[in-house]
Amino acid sequence: MAQCGSRACWFGLGVVLGVALGSACATLLRASPARGRPDSRADAPVVPSDASADRALTDDATDVVEYRGFVIHVFCHALGPGRFKALCDIWESGAVVLEGGAPPTTHATPEDARAAAISWARQWVQRNG
């Protein structure tokens, strides 16, 4: 092995070995992309295959209902195949008094989810209005 008597020589040797080791590690990571990286698809929600139908459910309020001076805006969301949840915002005199309220269940159809959210919002108005 070559002799290295100065600090600069040892420093140069360390840099060369570091570059070689780093290059080897980068090559190994590129060769096996699943190693060391979490699967981003594992956290992805399961949604129905027709994405255009889901977009129609989540863009705007699907129902607007007036009840005892309150305005209830209902939003329906597809959570997966056969799983829908509706949320509602409750307004009074042009101001939001409850945002994102909903019954704690999911439903098989968007219509069932909407009906449950409207019923829940009416009960909320009766108790708090």
Rank of each mutant, 00 (worst) to 15 (best):
M1W: 06
A2T: 14
A2K: 15
Q3I: 15
G5N: 11
A8C: 07
A8G: 05
W10P: 01
F11V: 15
F11E: 12
F11H: 07
G12M: 07
G12E: 04
L13I: 15
L13E: 08
L13T: 05
L13A: 14
V15C: 01
V16G: 11
L17M: 14
L17K: 13
G18Q: 08
L21E: 02
L21Y: 03
G22K: 09
G22E: 09
C25S: 13
C25V: 15
C25T: 15
A26S: 11
T27D: 09
T27C: 11
L29W: 09
R30L: 14
A31I: 00
P33Y: 12
A34S: 10
R37Y: 10
P38A: 08
P38Y: 10
D39Q: 06
D39L: 03
D39M: 14
A42H: 05
A44T: 15
V46P: 02
V47T: 12
V47C: 03
V47Q: 11
P48F: 07
P48Q: 14
P48I: 12
S49P: 07
D50F: 09
A51G: 06
S52G: 10
S52A: 14
A53P: 00
A53V: 15
D54V: 15
D54W: 04
R55F: 07
R55S: 12
A56E: 08
L57N: 02
D59S: 14
D59A: 15
D59C: 15
D60P: 01
D60Y: 12
A61L: 12
T62F: 04
D63R: 11
V65F: 08
Y67K: 14
Y67W: 03
R68Q: 06
G69K: 07
F70V: 11
V71L: 05
I72C: 03
H73M: 01
V74N: 03
F75E: 02
C76V: 14
H77T: 12
H77F: 04
H77L: 07
A78E: 10
A78V: 15
A78R: 08
G80V: 01
G80Y: 01
P81T: 00
F84A: 05
K85F: 00
A86R: 00
L87M: 03
I90F: 04
W91P: 02
W91S: 03
W91G: 00
W91K: 02
E92K: 01
E92A: 09
S93A: 11
S93N: 11
G94W: 03
G94L: 05
G94V: 11
A95H: 07
A95K: 06
A95Q: 08
V96L: 04
V97K: 04
L98E: 10
L98F: 04
E99H: 08
E99I: 02
G101T: 09
T105V: 04
T105I: 01
T105G: 00
T106L: 10
T106A: 05
T106M: 10
T106D: 06
A108P: 01
T109N: 13
T109Q: 13
P110G: 10
D112R: 06
A113V: 01
A116G: 00
A116E: 05
A116W: 01
A117L: 10
A117Q: 04
I118E: 13
I118V: 15
S119A: 14
S119E: 08
S119W: 00
W120K: 08
A121R: 04
A121N: 09
R122F: 10
R122L: 04
Q123F: 07
Q123D: 14
W124D: 02
W124G: 13
V125E: 01
V125K: 13
R127E: 10
R127Q: 13
N128Q: 09
N128A: 10
N128M: 09
G129Q: 07
